[in-house]
């Protein structure tokens, strides 16, 4: 086990900030995942309450993306428990987790490049429609109406992210920042309970980051819980209600931004100042 875990004051408190009265939307308990000899995520636990914006931070290689992929089903945990709305979801395929109400964006926007912007978002409506192969091929009654509804709902999401005017553009023709937003619209189109954003601000300029922060707050105000992995500290500190800090695959701190900001372990990890800590984490 990572000695850094036991040496931090916050880790020993457990998920203290989670109120016992509210049932957490997402519970991650002692989740562990290794790749060959490398333990990427080592017994991490945290909870996300409904309506929260939870930040997940840590230096490069801390295991943030791995943890993310464990939650959304791209990876299977070696051990531990992940529950969504009280239901265990670890080991589920990503599409099942998506249907359960968790949607996500990717670190590198992964749009469907042979479609236009609107069609990309319409794919997000997939699980909200029913017609199968036969119904679509024969245009059975109701199919046209369903198709119109998909188009309308997708258009609405594009309006939310402010890209309605680009609906008919090929997805591949958009600049990086706008691809991010299309991806966000696509994730929102699934009507998730919870949205996982993997480094949504990376590659964005200052203005775009500001807009993104507003957008994320708007999304939260619509009742969607957010978990975001982010490198941009100032953005996370402003947005998140609570932050989990990962280092070498282990949780080293958890709490509200002000507490995290002043946490000595976190400062050490980010500034790399403490020699003791550096040696202890190498031993792990």
């Amino acid at each position: 086990m990572n000695p850094a875990l036991s040496s931090t004051p916050f880790a020993s408190d457990g998920p203290s900030t989670a109120s016992t009265a509210v049932q957490p939307l997402l519970e991650v308990e002692n989740v562990r995942r290794s790749f060959g000899g490398l333990v990427a995520v080592d017994g991490v636990s945290f909870r996300v309450l409904p309506g929260q914006i939870k930040g997940l931070i840590g230096p490069n290689g801390a295991g943030k993306t791995t943890l993310f992929n464990l939650v959304c089903g791209l990876l299977r945990p070696d051990a531990g428990r992940i529950a969504f709305q009280g239901r265990p979801i670890e080991g589920w395929k990503p599409y099942r987790i998506a249907r359960a109400g968790i949607s996500r964006t990717f670190q590198n926007p992964s749009l469907f490049l042979q479609m236009n912007v609107l069609e990309n978002v319409m794919v997000g409506r997939h699980r909200r429609a029913r017609r199968g192969f036969l119904g679509c091929a024969l245009r059975l009654p109701g199919q046209a109406a369903e198709e119109r509804a998909i188009r309308q709902a997708a258009m609405q999401q594009l309006e939310v992210v402010g890209l309605a005017h680009l609906a008919m553009f090929p997805a591949g023709s958009l600049p990086f920042g706008q691809r991010r937003l299309v991806e966000l619209a696509r994730a929102l189109a699934t009507e998730p309970r919870m949205l996982l954003l993997d480094e949504p601000a990376s590659g964005l300029n200052t203005k775009e980051k500001e807009d993104l922060a507003d957008l994320i707050r708007q999304i939260r105000d619509r009742g969607i819980t957010l978990l975001l992995v982010e490198h941009d500290m100032s953005l996370v500190m402003r947005l998140a209600d609570e932050i989990v800090v990962l280092h070498h695959g282990a949780r080293i701190a958890e709490g509200p931004p002000q507490v995290i900001q002043n946490d000595p372990t976190v400062i050490n990890v980010y500034l790399g100042g403490n020699l003791d800590h550096a040696t202890s984490s190498q031993e792990s």
């Binding site: 469907f112 794919v123 699980r127 679509c136 369903e146």
Partner: peptide, 28 residues
């Protein structure tokens, strides 16, 4: 008809980015 429907889009999504298609709830 099939290709210009949610099924056609799902197939195209699998072609373009299978991981993202799966994350959108499509049983790829």
């Amino acid at each position: 008809n099939l290709l210009r429907s949610r099924i056609g889009r799902a197939l195209q999504a699998i072609h373009d980015r299978e991981t993202a298609a799966n994350a959108m709830g499509i049983n790829t």
